[in-house]
Simulated scan of single mutants.
Amino acid sequence: MIRRHPLAEQAAEELLQRIGSGEWPLGQKLPGETTLAAQLGVGRSTIREAIRELAGRRVLESRQGAGVFVIALQATEDWDKVLRKADIADLMEVRLAIEAEAALLAASRRTPADLKMFRYTLADRQKASVNAPDDWYVEADLAFHRAVITAAHNAVLAELFDTLVPRIRRAMMDMLKLDETHRHRHDQAAHEAIADAIRDKDPERAADRTRQHLSAVRSTVS
């Protein structure tokens, strides 16, 4: 019997447990709302909300005129939760994969506007590296990396990077607190090298310089 608040979340968890226990196997149609409501001791509106939640988590699927079916035996974890729990080393590995590919593409696709943005963001980053508050410096650093992603001219890659930015920002703030030698603030040359390779239209060098830079950062936390 479901008694505690919030009812819909509790109902969703109960349904998920019953699916996981094998009561409703993969592909099985769930009982109707009235039956489920009686079994769980909640209203039909609560059952509908619980089903919507599990549909959003890709466990259930509502099919018009047919009913609700089990399409997975466990919930896919929310992407934001995955990122919040990710440790810095894992995050850096993902950045390596994404940003090295972005640099490679940028070297083939960059435009005059992209090169202008590199000059602006590099200059801004250089200024911020000298005694600026950590949050200002982090934003300046991220602006350069975002400029590289933008120069790749791939909307999906840009969207993926943007989903990582909040977690990257927190990771950078954490790393700066532990960086007594200010090593991260003094790697302007590594960023200049990435921009130079993209400007020279050298994809392999651009990707390699990006890998070298991010690998050096990762080595400080692994």
Rank of each mutant, 00 (worst) to 15 (best):
L115W: 05
D187L: 13
L83H: 00
E139W: 00
V94A: 10
T111Y: 07
P166K: 02
R167P: 03
D135R: 14
I88Q: 06
I88H: 05
L96V: 04
V165Q: 06
D135I: 12
L178E: 14
Q188K: 09
P133V: 04
R119T: 11
V68F: 03
M172R: 13
A97N: 11
L96E: 11
A189D: 14
L176H: 02
W136H: 15
Y137F: 15
R185C: 06
M117N: 13
T111S: 13
R170T: 11
A151S: 08
A155H: 12
A147M: 03
T181I: 09
G65R: 05
D114K: 02
Q64G: 10
R109H: 11
M173V: 07
L176C: 03
S62I: 07
T76M: 12
D87M: 04
R95N: 07
T163Y: 09
F118T: 03
E139R: 13
A86M: 15
S108N: 13
A103D: 04
L73P: 02
A97D: 11
I98P: 05
A171L: 04
R146G: 06
A171V: 01
E180A: 15
A89T: 12
A171C: 03
F118M: 08
L164G: 05
G67K: 06
E180G: 07
R63G: 02
D134P: 02
T121K: 02
L178N: 12
D90G: 12
Q126F: 07
G67T: 07
A106F: 01
A132I: 07
A100E: 14
R170I: 05
V130C: 10
A123F: 07
Q74M: 09
E139T: 06
I88P: 02
E139M: 09
Y137V: 01
Q74L: 08
D114V: 04
I98G: 08
A128K: 03
T111V: 06
I71F: 04
N131F: 10
I168Q: 00
A103I: 04
Y120L: 15
F144Q: 03
L142M: 09
L83M: 08
A147E: 02
D134M: 05
K116N: 10
I71G: 05
A123H: 12
L142T: 01
R125T: 12
K127I: 10
L96W: 01
L83Q: 03
A132C: 08
F118E: 04
A128I: 01
D174Q: 15
L157I: 05
D134L: 03
A140Y: 01
E139D: 15
V156L: 14
H191W: 05
H153T: 05
V82M: 07
F161I: 07
R119K: 13
A100H: 04
F118R: 03
M172Y: 11
R84N: 10
L122R: 01
R170A: 14
D135V: 12
L91K: 00
P166M: 04
D179Q: 07
S62W: 07
L105H: 09
H184A: 11
I98L: 15
A123V: 02
S62Q: 13
R119S: 14
D162I: 02
R169D: 06
A123S: 14
R167M: 02
T111C: 06
E192T: 08
A89R: 13
A113H: 12
A190C: 07
K127V: 11
A171D: 04
A75I: 01
A155K: 14
D179L: 06
H153N: 11
E77P: 07
D124T: 13
A128L: 00
A143F: 00
H153D: 09
V156N: 11
F69K: 05
